[in-house]
């Protein structure tokens, strides 16, 4: 298991997966506040001549809360996209290209292989979510004002991170089922966004992982009473996805063409 984790870390570093993901978070964390403060108003002004400062503020949001919520939203939408296609090869490629054949013949357990992937990339994403939220807090604080409490920012960063662990598990499960990297990326996004919309439409967000994203973008001083429930359901879903992955791996035919 330790060796599996070491291997995944090596992969993350040498294939620049960590770098890509980290830059993805940084990009939105740093650029979003700058865009809202300087660039968007200019664009709006040129599009709608004579627009008042107040109307602008209402449309774009000038508080730290508005900016950080927008950041959370961007990470959920575009960030998920980057993550899905950066990590879609995580296991699908290994199955497709038979690189798992020798490890398995040498006695590597499926659980170890799968858990190592989820632990390494899940932790990385959790960390990047947290760092991203803090940098975004810093930037939006300088440009607007520090109205949010740092605790709620840390909490939101962590909640988003837990959601990202769920996303990683989703990638691994679809990879094992479909065995094709690009299709894995699309299915992951389809199921992640699908759950989000279902949650929104039926108002059952607090029973779904997408509830974490909603909660995170509120930056509430006191978290919703349903948060614990959302968290435990998410952990439950993660465990179910891992179980499905392992069952599927156990029945797999290896070394196919």
């Amino acid at each position: 298991m330790i060796q599996d984790i070491k291997k995944e870390i090596l992969y993350g570093l040498r294939s620049y997966r960590f770098l890509i993901l980290f830059v993805g978070f940084l990009f939105f964390a740093m650029l979003d506040p700058v865009m809202t403060k300087f660039i968007m108003p200019e664009i709006m002004k040129s599009q709608v001549p004579g627009i008042t400062q107040e109307a602008l503020g209402q449309m774009l949001g000038t508080s730290q809360l508005a900016v950080m919520s927008a950041y959370m939203n961007d990470i959920f939408q575009i960030g998920s996209l980057i993550i899905a296609f950066t990590l879609c090869r995580l296991i699908a490629q290994e199955i497709r290209e038979n690189t798992l054949v020798l490890p398995i013949c040498s006695g590597k357990q499926f659980a170890g292989i799968v858990l190592a992937k989820i632990i390494v990339f899940g932790t990385a994403l959790l960390l990047f979510s947290l760092i991203g939220a803090l940098i975004n807090y810093l930037y939006s604080g300088i440009l607007f004002s520090y109205d949010l409490s740092i605790i709620s920012v840390v909490r939101s960063g962590l909640l988003q991170g837990v959601y990202m662990v769920f996303l990683t598990t989703l990638i691994v499960m679809w990879g094992v089922i479909i065995k094709k990297p690009i299709a894995t990326g699309f299915l992951t996004l389809a199921s992640a966004f699908g759950l989000y919309f279902i949650g929104g439409a039926l108002q059952i967000d607090s029973y779904l992982p997408s509830g974490l994203i909603k909660e995170a973008s509120l930056f509430a001083v006191i978290p919703a009473s349903t948060l614990l429930q959302t968290l435990s359901i998410t952990v439950g879903i993660i465990l179910v996805l891992i179980a499905v992955t392992l069952i599927r791996l156990k029945k797999m035919e290896w070394n196919e063409r």
Binding site: S15, I20, V23, G24, F27, L31, I82
Partner: peptide, 17 residues
């Protein structure tokens, strides 16, 4: 292409790792 350019290159442009 600001930041996204290098990212896209690293994901799909690199010769076989």
């Amino acid at each position: 292409v600001n930041l996204i350019g290098p990212i896209i290159f690293l994901i799909v442009g690199r010769r076989k790792e």
